[in-house]
Amino acid sequence: MKPYAFFLGCSIPARVNHYEASSRMVLKEFGVDLLDIERFSCCGPVPLRSISFDMFLTVGARNLALAETEGLDIMCLCSGCFSTLSDVNHQLREDSELRKDINKKLEPTGLAYGGKIAVKHFLNVLHQDVGVNTIKKRIVRPYKDLRIATHYGCHTVRPSKVVQSGTIPPVFFDELVEATGAESVDWSAKASCCGGPVLGADEQLAMDLCEKKIADAKAWKADFLCTSCPFCQVQFDSIQAKIATDRGNAYDLPSILYPQLLGLAMDMDTDLLGIDNNRISLDSIDTFF
C-alpha cells in the first residue's frame, strides 16, 4: 500500500498530542505507512475562509500541492483540516479556471496544484483501506458490556457531496467502534456540532452546545464518549471539566479518542497511547475488559 502524506495541522500538537501518538501506533500495526512533510503548514481553516475565500483556497492549495509533488494522497487526523482540505480540493478539481487563478497566486512558492490527489480522514483510512474485518482479527482484549457514544461531529460527514464519507446517516464510525467489542449506542446527537468552532467567539454558547450533547449521551447510558477530532475531544474533555467547575454540572462522562479505544483492545502500551493525558480520567475503562 502507498503511504499517506500525514497532515497534522495546528490543534493536535498544541492540545491533543495523544491523538497523534495513538493514531501512529495503530496505523503502524495495520501496515499503513505515513510520510511526514516538513513543509506542510496550518490547513487554512474555517476562520481564514471567514476572512477571505481566496486566501483559504491558496493556503489549502499549497498543502495539496506539496502532497501531490510526492505523488501521495493526504490523511488527516483533525476533522477541521479534513474539511478544509477536502473542500479546497473539491473546488479546485471541479473548476479548472479557479485552479488556474489560485495557482497564479501560488507562483512565488514555486508550487502548483494539478488536482490529482485525494484527501482522507483517519477513520476513512481505517474503514476503507484496512477494513473492519481485519481490525476485528487484531483485537486481543475485546470490551464487554461497554456502551460508547460514538461522535462523528460535523466535518467527517458534511457536506456529504464534498467529503464523500459514505451514507447519511453515517455508519462507518459505529462499525469501527463495534469492531472492538463495544456497543455503539443510538444517541441522537452523534452527528451534530460539539460547539468547538464557536469557542473563540462565544464561550458560553460553546459550553451550551457541549453540555447538551454530554447530557444526551448520559441519557443513553453511555459509559464513554468516543471522538476522532481534536476540537471535539477538547470540548468533551477540557470544556466538560470547565462545565463541572463553572456551572456545577458534573457529568463525569470521559471521552476517549478512537485510536486509544482501539489500541487498548489491541493490548498496546498505555503510556504511549497517552491514556493519562486525558483531563477526565479514562481509568474506568479497565472494568470493561
Binding site: C10, P13, A14, N17, E20, A21, R24, E38, C42
Partner: peptide, 23 residues
Amino acid sequence: GRTAEIMDWEREDLELPELSGAG
C-alpha cells in the same frame, strides 16, 4: 504561522517527532 503553540514537552514524553516549523 500557526494557530496555537506546540506543546513540545508532551511530544517528547509521547516519543513524537520534532516539528521543524519550516511550513
